[in-house]
Simulated scan of single mutants.
Amino acid sequence: MRSVKEGARILRSAHGNVPLSLLLDTNLSDPDFFDRAMMNIEPDSPHLNNDGFMSVSFQSNRPIALKKFQQFLDYQLPENVFRAKGILWFDDSPLRHVFQLSGKRFTIDDSEWVTPQKNQMVLIGRKLDKLFLLQRLNDCLVR
């Protein structure tokens, strides 16, 4: 990379996980921007909001019904959701599930729980309907 662009920043990532602001923000001349982004501290980015880019966070202390979540992904997830990631707790599994979505592709990796079971997920996209997304995700929870 540096042979093509002197001074290029090279990021190490797992599964291409890079802070959204490093991909979309144009304020790279700010000397502290890179450090804040890598620490997941978002700088003020009014143009991101003006362009309609946003995130929706979802949390729950109740497990998710796997079949309902699969239906959400297959039939209800809006096209304007570009990225999603999170830790999921499915009712029929004792494992912790790390969820990654990019476009229409997703992966779910399993591991043991080391913290109390809960769901934490963020969806990133453009002009998202927060209420719709939260309602659909709440519909996936076990009653």
Rank of each mutant, 00 (worst) to 15 (best):
I41A: 03
I41E: 13
I41V: 12
E42T: 08
E42P: 01
D44E: 15
D44P: 02
S45Q: 13
S45D: 06
P46S: 11
P46M: 11
H47V: 02
L48T: 05
L48W: 06
L48G: 03
L48S: 13
N49Y: 06
N50M: 09
N50F: 04
N50V: 01
N50K: 13
D51N: 13
D51Y: 08
D51T: 00
G52A: 07
G52W: 09
F53D: 01
F53E: 01
F53Y: 15
M54L: 03
M54D: 13
S55G: 13
S55C: 03
S57V: 05
S57I: 00
F58N: 05
F58G: 05
F58T: 06
F58E: 08
Q59A: 11
S60H: 10
S60Q: 13
N61Q: 14
N61E: 15
N61G: 09
N61C: 04
R62Q: 14
R62Y: 10
P63Y: 09
P63D: 12
P63L: 09
I64A: 01
I64F: 08
I64P: 00
A65Q: 14
L66H: 15
K67S: 15
K67I: 03
K68M: 06
F69K: 04
F69S: 04
F69R: 08
Q70T: 13
Q70H: 08
Q70E: 14
Q71C: 03
F72V: 06
L73T: 04
L73M: 15
L73N: 12
L73V: 10
D74E: 15
Y75A: 12
Y75C: 07
Y75D: 15
L77W: 02
P78Y: 07
E79V: 12
E79L: 09
N80V: 07
N80K: 11
V81E: 05
F82H: 07
F82S: 02
A84W: 01
A84Y: 03
A84N: 04
A84S: 12
A84R: 03
K85S: 05
K85V: 03
G86C: 08
G86L: 07
G86M: 09
G86A: 08
L88R: 04
L88T: 08
W89S: 08
W89A: 03
W89N: 11
F90R: 06
F90K: 07
F90S: 09
D91K: 10
D92L: 03
D92W: 00
D92E: 12
S93A: 14
S93F: 09
L95H: 08
L95F: 12
L95V: 04
R96F: 01
R96C: 13
H97F: 01
H97K: 04
H97G: 02
F99L: 11
F99A: 10
F99R: 10
F99I: 11
Q100W: 01
Q100G: 00
Q100T: 10
Q100I: 05
S102P: 00
S102L: 14
S102T: 15
G103P: 15
G103A: 15
K104V: 02
K104Q: 14
F106K: 06
T107W: 00
T107D: 15
T107P: 00
D109I: 07
D109Y: 06
D109K: 13
D110N: 12
D110T: 15
E112T: 09
E112V: 05
E112A: 07
W113D: 06
W113G: 06
W113N: 07
V114M: 02
V114R: 11
V114K: 09
V114Y: 06
V114H: 08
T115S: 09
T115N: 12
T115Q: 13
P116E: 14
P116V: 02
